[in-house]
Design a protein around this nucleic acid. Structure first.
Length: 209
DNA sequence: TGCCAGGCCCTCTTTAGGGCCTT
């Protein structure tokens, strides 16, 4: 069974050979962190050999080279390990629809599956931080002065930054509204509400809790 | 930091178009 609270989730990030698994693109790296009761308690990071050479653009963008991928395990070995890592947890990603498409596509190639549901840190940030210059992960890390070692576009580093962003959003909600425990489902619901309704939804929930 | 897609979201909208975000 998936954890109900928003402070216990797996935050994940894929680096891929392109934008669309339907166009033949594959995962080349997966990174994830487990957050339990608001603390990062575990990490997962694996390069994945896609079975073909990646473009120069992707190598430059990620810093992941074809030489690195040649030595890496294929998805059929990596994905079952990852399915074990995320088992029983709800999932968070920045622009989650992108990562969900690759997770589903890579898991479909194995017998592995998952039971948690996704929430998107980007959709939530668009509602909570409407004054931010934009809602790219790197911009939000700078905007909220979140911890970073300066590494971008690598799966574990991006997953960690997304995790800190997620925790910051929980903290900001709890600082503004008297909510002790935020259900994961509330944040999923908020991310789909019109921006003008976010405050009233949180106020109504705070009164009821 | 470009192209391929897809979902969200705004507006000069809804019989549509284009920007944002992910790699």
């Amino acid at each position: 069974m998936s954890q109900r609270n928003a402070d216990t989730v797996v935050v994940l990030d894929f680096e891929t050979s392109g934008l669309s698994p339907d166009m033949g693109d594959r995962a080349i790296e997966i990174g994830a962190v487990l957050i339990e009761s608001g603390q990062i308690t575990d990490r997962f990071q694996q390069l994945i050999n896609p079975g073909f050479r990646i473009s120069g653009f992707i190598a430059d963008y990620t810093g992941i080279t074809n030489a690195m991928l040649q030595k890496a395990e294929k998805a059929q070995h990596v994905m079952p390990q990852f399915a074990e890592f995320i088992a029983g947890h709800n999932l968070v990603a920045h622009n989650a629809s992108f990562d969900q498409r690759f997770l589903d596509a890579e898991l479909a190639r194995t017998r592995a599956s998952y039971s948690g549901s996704f929430a998107c840190s980007m959709l939530l940030a668009r509602r909570l931080y409407q004054q931010a210059p934009n809602h790219k992960l790197g911009t939000l890390v700078e905007y909220k002065q979140l911890p970073t070692d300066g590494t971008y576009h690598r799966a574990l580093a991006d997953a960690e930054m997304t995790a800190y962003l997620w925790l910051q959003m929980l903290q900001d909600i709890q600082g503004q509204y008297p909510i002790e425990q935020i259900p994961f489902s509330l944040l999923q619901k908020l991310a789909k509400k019109p921006k003008g309704q976010v405050s009233s939804v949180l106020q109504k929930f705070a009164k009821a809790s």
